[in-house]
Design a protein around this nucleic acid. Structure first.
Lengths: 237, 237, 237, 237
DNA sequence: GATGAATGAGTATTCATTCAT
DNA sequence: TATGAATGAATACTCATTCAT
């Protein structure tokens, strides 16, 4: 009897869970297809095969529903990214995997970027950082941390500046590629990785003495960035 | 009489021009302050001291008005950028100037970025590239072209990929800096310039392999040591 | 030409005025017939032959429209009361006229009493005294003041207590009479006037205690006998 | 065992009764605090610690629940009034007690008056007399009847007109006093009692012959009211 | 050109009530 | 009895746009 009751409870929960998923699926589809303003709660309800009022049992209002939809997207992206990155590789390789994954995903689901901007808007506050985005962003941070721990990257790497360049470049590129109807562009990724050269710790460098010309440029670049970072700090003080 | 009429016409034109400016000023203010959805044509008319109907003599509809407002912003940005960049400098210096200008401007008027996204949306099409933005983007392209012409940059530089990284990084960074209430961050700019190192043509390299190279190495080593000690200090704090 | 313009202006004003009246007429009818909750803005607009949105050009919202409708009622009532009362009569006579007028009017338009209660409700405050009601109430006060000035009424008369009894009785009675489908009941009015007896100043009393008194007594006695017999008759029926 | 079952049954009944009371308490609180429109069945259920659906096992719908709440109020008022009135006193004294009790109670729970109006509204019918109010009103009638039986009051007293004046005055006064934040005003009560003077049978009158001046006024007033009543009847025929 | 009154389509949200469990 | 998830009708209000002066 307790089993049956637990069974029933289970079924109930599953039903609610299924309904919740159904709503999110419908909402995602409609928001994606029609944009925030083009979307009506009625249409979402229709596609989820529920009554309009039921939507409000699961989500406080349209804005909240949008936030959940967007949050879900980034949560899924986080999962995918963790899968896509092989942490046994050298960090530069990992960053390439992450960049590739990110760029590909954004190109495919670029509408979500627009929705994300809308979901971030809060009445009063200028903008709002969705928690799920923060989690996603951590994937990048973790790779960098790993790199530093493994002595593959210099501690001097300015974390959040690099992070912004990384994600900013990819997002912007995704928009452009979308417009040009290109599925993917490796150059963007490669270009991005150049950014990390100055922080790359060359294990071989100690071994071989010969300072090649390339090495000079690299060293200069590294110095310049580090100097900029120090100056910045000083300016802020 | 023709003089008087031309006079009048002139005055008339000036009046219309002034009214147009008044409308754009009002529209910019309201859109910026209240966002696209918070803005009403009535409020814009009120602030421009004209009747609601008059707005429609100057602009087809709200969406078009927004497009003009946003277009104006980018046109102004173009003007400013052209002023900010000294084309007599080495291209890297020019890029640094442009990046600095762009980042500063975006941080100061970040609301415009949001409006830009909204202005790009067209019913049906996924997104739309505003002509004024294209013009702005050309400023970057011209610097690169100049660099290639002057043999400062390799022809191998992948133009639009670099461009996307350039603008994408700065835009994204601007958002972040805005959130952190930071006015400017040189690191972002410097970081970005690293990207162009691989395409930098070292005129001295091919020509001379003389003693200056040794000296360069020596100086570099000295600087690196100093930097390392500074970073160490910082890390200990 | 100035005439034509003034004419036009006049016409315009008249049109707006007419529209305003049309709205109020429609609103009054609908509120009266269907009650506050039964009334929809759409129905009012329909009956006023205007668009729904137009209602909001004339009245901020439903609650405000109701307040105006109710206010109008009391303003009209004030006018009527001033007409109904002949200030040359002894005050008791005036009060009788006012009471008669008030009772009759309330019986005929009793729905307005219910609307009045609803119009008085403000969000937050417990209740709210409509200005137009205050003006109406002044009609009573003025009669009393007049009476006191003319030495027909004692200054000892507790003004607002009497006023409340006056209006309270009539309003409550109006409800009852409405339920019983009675158009008017003089008894209520007469009953009410008894209240003022203690404050009536008998000019003759102090001056003369002469023969008229005897005569009065005689006449009273005669009337009392006749009345008693009539009442007896009535009782037997 | 039968005892135990009866015990259980008893407990069950008590439980139901307790739940019913809990619902009514919650409903009364919410209706009083938030008004009819501000009240939701969900909130009542929440405060009564039951499910929404359960409310409908005890009360057909919101309107009915309101009616019960309001009915309860008047039933309680009836109880209180019967306690407050000492039927051994002269009727005028009893009326004074009733008036005092009524006024005090209404001032304290004035929100109930508003709820009463709303409870009386029926779809279609203009208004509806709640049974519990009728019972309450009987308290007044009984005092009057007693007075007539005891020969303290004249049979000529027009019962329901007096009743309406009685309750109407007090209700209206209660509203006013509430607004002025006054707890009680004896003047109102005293004022009201004047109304009964004309019907007061002066036992002493037969004993003492001297028709005082006061007596004249009183006799006149009495006659006037009785005449009005007779004329009324005639008019209705 | 300028006006501003008029329009009316468009929708998020609430909540009394029901009913499967 | 009790539950509480589901329902869906019902509506005040906004505002971009138009058009008669």
């Amino acid at each position: 009897m307790s089993a049956s009751s637990s069974q029933t409870k289970n079924t109930q929960r599953e039903r609610l869970e299924a309904k919740e998923q159904s709503i999110l699926k419908a909402a995602t589809d409609v928001f994606t297809a029609l944009g925030v303003d083009g979307t009506t709660m009625a249409e979402i309800a229709r596609r989820a095969h529920i009554a309009e009022g039921t939507l409000y049992l699961y989500h406080k209002n349209k804005q909240d529903l949008l936030a959940v939809v967007v949050g879900n997207f980034w949560a899924e992206l986080t999962k995918g990214a963790l899968t896509a990155v092989d942490s046994s590789l050298p960090v530069i390789g990992q960053l390439k995997q992450l960049a590739t994954y990110h760029l590909t995903a954004l190109i495919q689901q670029f509408d979500m970027v627009g929705l994300t901007y809308r979901a971030r808007l809060r009445h009063g506050e200028p903008e709002y950082q969705l928690p799920k985005i923060r989690e996603y962003v951590r994937v990048f941070d973790q790779i960098i941390e790993r790199g530093i721990n493994r002595k593959e990257l210099s501690e001097a790497l300015p974390l959040w500046q690099c992070r912004d360049v990384f994600y900013g470049s990819l997002e912007y590129s995704a928009r452009t590629l979308r417009l040009r109807e290109i599925q993917f562009d490796l150059t963007v990724v490669e270009q991005l990785l150049v950014m990390f050269q100055p922080y790359k710790i060359n294990e071989a460098s100690a071994a071989k003495a010969g300072p090649s010309e390339t090495s000079t440029n690299t060293r200069l670049a590294r110095i310049e960035v580090q100097l900029a970072s120090l100056l910045q700090e000083k300016a802020q003080r």
